[in-house]
Write a protein that binds this DNA or RNA. Sequence first.
DNA 1: AAAAGCCCCTGGATGC
DNA 2: TGCATCCAGGGGCTTT
Length: 270
Amino acid sequence: MPELPEVEVTRRGFAERIAGARIDAVRIGKPLRWALMVEPGALIGRQVLAVRRRGKYLLVDLNRGLLLLHLGMSGSLRFDAVLPSPGAHDHFDLVTDRGTLRLNDPRRFGAVVYVEDEAAPWAVKLLGGLGMEPLGDAFDLDAFHAGLRKRRTAVKQVLLAGDVVVGVGNIYASEALFQAGIRPTLPAERISRPRAARLHAAVREILARAVEKGGSTLRDFSNVDGQNGYFQLEAAVYGRAGEPCRVCATPIRQLRQGQRSTYYCPKCQK
DNA sequence: AAAAGCCCCTGGATGC
DNA sequence: TGCATCCAGGGGCTTT
């Protein structure tokens, strides 16, 4: 599910509200992708300072240590003063004096991992290889183009890999490539400077627009207040195989790249 | 070093 | 209604 926009929408939904809270209890459900890596009771009494985002990870800063939280494919967070008793897919509760942060994740590809600091081995393993943040000033066009040029694989695969630019998942990769007019199968090394600039701009614009629309809700995603996103309603190509291109009416095509579906317009994208 | 496949897991949609 | 098959917003790990 959650690509950068969904993670950012989630973050914005509770970052201010939980800042300054004191942890009163931690509840663990079924195992997630990785163990918490700390005795849950050890977190009680600690204070939540802030919530940051790096790629598709949320970083919950405590007055000692931090939690690395990933939503995997089907995860979503809720935050409220009172939540119902945990359901079958509620696998992590962080109970604080300002409310409970709850991870619901049917497929359990998500994770919550505690580390003492960002230099800790687990933090380095999970965050160390991440590329540039696409929103904000750090997304440098020269570095982006350089990153594309050293890869022979399909440009869509490079976007998904996350070591050049982070946060672009399966929906927004297809959408950004459509907006930039680039074929998803094009080897990244063959992308010219002007086209790299178009893709650079498209990635930023698509992700920013999706954040504005509250993300995309296909199945599981909702924000911390349980509300859906609406970007999926304005997707140009994702999930629209066989339907007419919104620009030229040519039927949208679907193909497989690395076990994932890709959607594109054969006329608008070269 | 880079690229391609393989899994982790559950549930919804589709087809027989 | 029942059962099998396929597919799904990710990404670390293993194998080529």
